[in-house]
Design a binder for these strands. Structure first.
Lengths: 217, 217
DNA sequence: TAGATTGTTAATCGATTAACAATC
DNA sequence: TAGATTGTTAATCGATTAACAATC
């Protein structure tokens, strides 16, 4: 019963989907085994990084042969919890909400958006990308009824905190926050923020300071 | 002439916009000085982190008094290159492109989207959020004519590499890549990728492994 | 066996955190 | 002066990188 504690190394976790993508291509090409060095080359990454990352998933390989492709795929999906597809709701069907709802790539990430919510009555009752849109008032009830654990938040900044609290009170445990609002929620709630300002800051700073370096020209 | 080399600490850069936001609120409230400890409290961050981050921008404070609010604002904006607004193009006016184009927050980040591009002729000639949409064929010419340095890429994955190459050949130096495609471009081109799969992986892994820990209940 | 690759242990590097001296 | 805060230098921590032993 004493489950071994798994260490979550964030940089490693972020790289796993890249491996998964390449490995699935290999698998569909009928390739059965691959070494970490080969995989590293395909992903344009340092071989040592890849070796450590793969080891992190506890998958075992064979010296001289490498790893079984399908076994790594299974190990990564297991590690990320993508082996069982999880259902999510999305709240806020503006342009961003629409874009994410229509995005077909989530299939590969163990995620399925099964309903959308909005307060705009002209959207309620309709559907976007095959996903039905419900009134925001039904959010609490449907989360608890369907035992939804993950919420994608694409509402206006002003109402983000309020919606998040409603969702959490109904049983949501993880929130993917695409709004600029920093959410204040209990510690056991997992929030992943897509921080547009932070990303742009990195791009701007690199761009700005690289141009200074190249003044010699 | 020997310009001091500026070290780019990515985690620090990512936090700067948070400070900037809070400081601007203070400034508009007429508050003139603030200590790093107070600022840290406002941002719910470790005071030592904030002290180091602010020091990084080279702004000087006064012992016992703290920093001048407007001086930190200026220092951060200078550091990020946000003191001079830079013009950007956005390519791909699907839902995501629309969402970003309509997003008003970029005003605060020294960024202005001044034109959109798409291959869909039903969009060309129109405008979205006050931004005119041009035919993709005009991308190269307009980049070089207007000396655009930053491109926001929201096209389908398939054409991302091709569009990026066209933009780079026309003079673009930084690309904000919202597509799932890993771009292969010259080393001096700065690419910031919004990696949806990586973000979701972190959320999934945390969610999945936290639920294992709480099995006791 | 020989050698490539795994798996693990050690070394390096960089960011965070802590400690303390300088100063208004 | 006394004390709060800055600014800088040192210690810790964690991820990356390197080295090497184990093994098919």
């Amino acid at each position: 019963m004493a489950k071994e504690k798994i260490e979550l190394v964030i940089p490693t976790i972020r790289r796993l989907p890249t491996y998964l993508y390449k490995l699935k291509l290999l698998s569909s090409d009928g390739i059965e085994t691959i070494s970490t060095v080969q995989l590293a080359k395909m992903c344009a990454l340092n071989p040592i990084v890849v070796k450590k990352d793969i080891a992190h998933t506890k998958v075992k390989g064979k010296p001289k042969v490498g790893h079984n492709v399908n076994e790594i795929i299974a190990a990564i999906e297991e590690f990320l919890g993508w082996h069982n597809r999880s259902d999510a709701f999305i709240v806020g069907m503006g342009d961003l909400g629409k874009a994410l709802t229509k995005y077909s790539g989530f299939d590969n990430y163990g995620l399925r958006i099964i309903a959308g919510f909005d307060s705009d009555q002209s959207l309620v009752g309709g559907s976007i990308g095959g996903v039905k849109v419900f009134d925001i008032d039904e959010l609490h009830g449907l989360i608890s009824r369907l035992k939804i654990e993950m919420l994608i938040l694409t509402v206006p900044a002003k109402v983000a905190q309020k919606i998040a609290e409603i969702a959490v009170s109904a049983g949501v445990r993880g929130i993917w926050n695409f709004t600029p609002t920093k959410l204040h929620l209990p510690d056991n709630i997992i929030v992943q923020k897509v921080d547009i300002a932070a990303e742009l800051a990195v791009l701007s700073a690199k761009l700005f300071h690289s141009s200074e370096e190249e003044q010699s020209e």
